[in-house]
């Protein structure tokens, strides 16, 4: 059983580590790093389930009879592309955030946002009391 499920358990550990980085990290770029790790771990999950003991890469050759599952490979190819696309867009937004806030630490951004929300609210109240 240990041999049969070892791959999956490791994958679970990796996935959770990635997810942990996403959720706990305050640095926006590091969050994306975590996202990347999380996704890569899922890729390994898929590829692991496609492996057949003793099989080979699914490229047809008359000498070979046992191939690993090509479908999971196709799916993960697509998923990798999705991953890099998300990463690129995420980084682009992070860069824009840096330009707008001069920081990419979530705590500081939240504080600034709260500050501007507070200012807006006081402005609203002032406008109310004017009437």
């Amino acid at each position: 059983m240990i041999a049969g499920l070892f791959n999956y358990w490791i994958v679970i550990v990796l996935m959770m580590a990635g997810l942990y980085i996403v959720m706990s990290s305050g640095h926006l770029v590091k969050k994306i790093v975590g996202l990347n790790i999380f996704q890569t771990a899922v890729f390994i999950l898929f590829i692991s389930m496609g492996k057949i003991a003793g099989g080979t890469a699914p490229i047809i050759d008359s000498a070979i009879t046992l191939y690993s599952n090509p479908l999971t490979h196709v799916l993960i190819l697509t998923a990798i592309v999705v991953g890099v696309a998300t990463t690129a867009l995420g980084l682009a937004i992070a860069v824009r955030i840096h330009e707008a806030y001069d920081t990419v630490e979530e705590d500081e951004i939240t504080a600034m946002d709260a500050q501007s929300l507070h200012e807006e609210n006081t402005a609203s109240l002032a406008a109310e009391s004017d009437k």
Binding site: V22, G90, I93, R96, S116
Partner: peptide, 15 residues
Amino acid sequence: RALTASFRYLIMGTI
């Protein structure tokens, strides 16, 4: 704040 909102959505949406 649109940027932060979008980033937050990106992280949660990707998860």
